[in-house]
Design a protein around this nucleic acid. Structure first.
Length: 364
DNA sequence: CGACTTTGACCGGCGC
DNA sequence: GCGCCGGTCAAAGTCG
């Protein structure tokens, strides 16, 4: 398997800030002193135009930033997918029997969207994976890839674990949205029942939530969110079905790589590593929230992982804060650049892309 | 009475 | 083809 054939490095990193810079001298040239009133009027017009331009530019840069974040997400996805594939490939080559204890039967779907192993969920950028020619791709793999792509389009997955009172038997995660329970099931690998919720705030909201107590620590409730809300947060975490009157709990938010835009990298719940604490507790938001959250993000490699512990006050709101997103992006970038395997993969990908480009164009 | 929860039945995917 | 399993449905029950 070649990294170069699998990683799409075609990031369009152009910020196109030139129009802004070009406008500044233009405005200076326009200033003359022939008539005061005319100047004031003109200046007002200029200020208005400038404000409008800046606003427009700000919007454009914001959208650009969003795009870049998504691109970084894709890169992380690719990295995780490749890493996972490599691990799988190596394990199969070594003949290691990956037999799980409870059930030797391993479902395909489980390996695709395995919650406990977020890396598995990242074989999403099929434009890249499909592009490989050296790998012998069977029809099964193709259908698998199709499914993966469909799943990626359909649902983005976020895992949230919340430390609750051990005596609290309710499967309720207070996250600021309104949920309607539509089912409960005892799963094979966990004696604790899993509850299924739909977002009931908006009729057409596709988001679903699965809540189950952790098999390792039953005081931890793990919620898996699938999809994206097509409506704003209800901003009333206490209201509706998903209320929880238990005392302050700790919440770990694990976003599967490439499945959320706010955290563009894979994270693991049980990772160890240096912890950076960012206290985003805002006095304004404290009033209605009784829940403290612990947001953990790590780099794709366990060895070089950096865990970002963020203490904040609400379930979904804090993720949308620009400073928090910026912080996460920076942390991800730092942890990724510290990862030698990622560096190697990136270097290989870039060199491969350059060579490919050279082969096509015949020049540098 | 409407909204929500509970829970057994059903369905489809998957492995053997 | 069969059985297992996760996810969903829907009727009945509960609650405010």
């Amino acid at each position: 398997m070649e990294f170069t054939s699998l990683v799409d490095t075609s990031l369009d990193l152009s910020f196109r800030l030139r129009p802004v810079l070009e406008k500044v001298p233009k405005q200076e040239v326009q200033s003359d002193f022939t008539g005061l009133s005319r100047d004031i009027e003109r200046e007002n017009m200029g200020v208005k135009n400038e404000a409008g331009d800046l606003l427009e530019e700000l919007n454009r840069v914001s959208s650009e930033n969003k795009k870049l974040t998504e691109m970084l997400t894709v890169v992380c996805e690719n990295y995780n997918a490749l890493r996972n594939q490599m691990m799988e490939y190596m394990s199969t080559q070594n003949g290691v029997a990956e037999d799980s204890s409870a059930g030797s039967r391993k479902r395909k779907a489980e390996s695709i969207s395995n919650i406990s192993n977020p890396v598995n969920n990242n074989n999403n950028n099929m434009d890249v994976v499909h592009g490989r020619s050296s790998e012998s791709s069977s029809s099964d793999e193709e259908s698998c890839c199709k499914k993966l792509r469909e799943e990626h389009i359909k649902a983005k997955v976020t895992i949230v674990s919340m430390k609750t009172d051990a005596s609290d038997t309710s499967l309720i995660v207070k996250d600021g949205y309104q949920w309607r329970k539509y089912g409960q099931k005892v799963t094979r690998d966990n004696p604790c029942p899993r509850a299924y919720f739909r977002c009931s705030f908006a009729p057409g909201c596709p988001v679903k939530k699965k809540v189950q107590r952790s098999i390792e620590d039953q005081s931890i409730v793990v919620a898996t969110y699938e999809g994206e809300h097509n409506h704003p947060q209800t901003s009333k975490p206490e209201s509706g079905a998903s209320t929880n009157t238990s005392t302050a709990s700790r919440l770990n938010v694990t976003t599967i790589a490439g499945t959320t835009t706010s955290v563009p990298c894979s994270t693991t719940l049980n990772s160890s590593g240096p912890t950076i604490t960012l206290d985003l507790t805002a006095p304004k938001t404290v009033e209605k929230r009784d829940m403290k959250m612990n947001h953990s993000t790590t780099s794709p490699t366990g060895a070089n992982s950096i865990r970002t512990t963020t203490t904040t006050t609400t379930g979904g709101e804090y993720q949308n804060r620009p400073e928090f997103q910026q912080f996460l992006i920076e942390q991800m970038a730092t942890s990724l650049t510290k990862d030698p395997s990622f560096k190697a993969a990136l270097a290989a990908a870039i060199s491969g892309k350059i060579f490919q480009h050279n082969n096509q164009t015949g020049r540098w």
